[in-house]
Design a protein around this nucleic acid. Structure first.
Lengths: 206, 206, 206, 206
DNA sequence: GCCTAACCGAGACGGTACGTCTCGTCTTTAC
DNA sequence: GTAAAGACGAGACGTACCGTCTCGGTTAGGC
């Protein structure tokens, strides 16, 4: 469950995960998630998490290598394991608009805004965490997106020539970017425009 | 020249910019830029900047509201005021590939990687700084991009119906996102693929 | 009027006392006296005095060598130049009790407590200021005391053999000490006891 | 051992003295005592003490409420717990002269001058510290003095009518005062004169 | 009745120290 | 052996003052 266990070998002093106190673990990630929403990323501290969780600091240091790893686990717990497949009504454009509008909704939800920004901050400066994020959170989500796009290819609604990774970046990249940099309003209208433009391309049509 | 002048009115206690020591200002932003490259964003401190610049801490706090604002000014000084127009050979696709490949190059340049990540971290959590960034750095750049795209529209290489802001997001968003989240390799091949896919769209062609 | 003029020679840059702004001088010492009573010695600052007096800091540094010197001048202005002779009713014991009771009164007056403690603090650590204090404030007072004691010697109420400096220390030293160290209650009863014991001596009488 | 333990109750946040690191405590008071002698009271800083002691600043702030309290403990450690009884040869005058000459000696010793002045400065402005000083350092010393004076009363060398507190103030007050205010030379001759005058009184003798 | 030197208010500057906060490690006690 | 608790060395935070240094704007003699 932990993002980056320091070590799982038999080295002396290595925490033995079987001994781990599950109640403390939950208290810590819960406290981290709540605190980041309350005080913001900049004022989030290990000491604060430990105090809120009613836990010794060492218990955090024992099981997580960094503040980012705690935050990541907090994210896993509160958003994780959800997200079944993407909708498939047979109409790719409509389905993509539905999904991207939901993404916009989520990014504008104040309950998720701070935690998400915090996680992105950590990822920004910690390649190891970025890798874990890619594997544990972004990866599964991307696979679902690819499944839907592959279905669209089979249905003839998406060019066979297109690299699906590029396609996904073209659809979701603009949204994420606008959210991260606040470079413009993040509305469902924008989501629609992105979907339409990405599908049709920038070139003029005959 | 300062990112966020606290106030320029006649309110009591407001620093009087005319008295400002230009030598100190330059020493501070230079030190900030150098240090963020040497020790990384996480270990960048106001104290360190002041020491390196041979300046009292108060001189920083007097003129900048946050570490991010210093970093922003450092950016302005070292990257700023450049960037003429985008190339216009008449071939939009080729020109975009040239520009996006250059962007990829820049993002992979270790001299700019840390400072840029640092700036993005600050923007991520400081809407005021984000606004200044949008106005002072991103805005002018965006205008240049729009000029090129408008020329392409006039030349019939770009659909008249397309919203230029969306077009820009579709082209540059994927790159920035991949760089920020390290969600995949950032190569010139990727830049080409993004340009081609964005221009042609995801739909199959007749 | 100034405690320790930095220099009165013709050296370049030496302030010319004839040019001195009397209004500023008064504002400064007044502000110093008020502030030390309001915020206490520990929190008394040159900046605070300058701000309260509506004066530039340099105007203080130009005319006084130290915070203590300002305080001393403040003292001179507010307590100075008073104190005529000590009472002489012909009864030494009664007169001394009157005077020491008045001293007790003064030391217990909250308006003078803080400024006096502040002055004593400076004297404690600044021999130069101590010398000025001895010359300008303590000296004249001591002379008045000696006059009264000499009269008592002539009247046969004080031993001719006694060193008047020692006598004065014996009478006023205990009071000052008790005040400075708060080593006991400072009452008129204590003043009386000191006078009686000093006059009669500690030895048993026949 | 600490001057002013903030609290020893079960209140939250109160330091638990049983956990205290004795080595750090000793290093701090030693550093404080050395530093006050080297750089003087005015330039004595918590930061300097911490650096000299090889200790974090917080360790000082955790256990002492003020710079004065540290100084006080330093005093306790370096002068404390000594001082047996006062000499009793049967000759009160001679014994008092011996003791007061020793006091003069001590006050003139440069190794004790600065620390003592520093302590007196703090006492001057901190009633709480004054109370602790009265209880822990001055009190025991005063008791010893009283014992000697009571013996003198039993031996018929000191008036039964005399208040011992007043007697002590009469003997030691003048010395302390002269030392604090530098109001005159502090010599063994002066000590002798004080003893003689105090014993015989100021009145002329038959 | 100018000229010019000094004072004046204001406040920026390079610094030092403050007292607080958090870091990551270490130690103690209880379970 | 894990956990809560929290002391510890370290060091950055943002603030308050230090004493020095310009900066314009008055004064106030000396010419």
């Amino acid at each position: 469950m932990t993002a980056q266990p320091k070590d799982s070998s038999a080295r002396r002093g290595t925490p033995d995960a079987t001994r781990r106190n599950e109640a403390s673990r939950r208290a810590i990630v819960t406290a981290a998630f709540e605190l980041v929403g309350e005080v913001g990323y900049a004022k989030l501290s290990i000491e604060g998490i430990a105090a809120r969780a009613g836990v010794g600091k060492q218990t955090i240091y024992r099981w997580w290598p960094s503040k980012g790893a705690v935050l990541f686990d907090a994210f896993l717990m509160f958003t994780g394991d959800q997200a079944p497949a993407l909708p498939d009504t047979g109409d790719l454009e409509a389905d993509l608009k539905t999904v991207l509008r939901a993404t916009v909704e989520e990014l504008n939800d104040p309950r998720f805004d701070e935690p998400m920004r915090a996680l992105n901050t950590e990822i920004l400066h910690d390649p190891a965490l970025a890798a874990v994020y890619a594997e544990r959170l972004d990866g599964p989500m991307k696979e679902l997106k690819k499944q839907r796009l592959r279905a669209a290819q089979r249905a003839g609604q998406l060019s066979e020539a297109v690299d699906l990774d590029v396609a996904i970046d073209l659809l979701w990249g603009p949204l994420l970017n606008r959210w991260l940099q606040r470079s413009g309003p993040l509305t469902s209208g924008y989501a629609d425009a992105v979907v339409e433009t990405a599908l049709n391309g920038l070139r003029p049509h005959a």
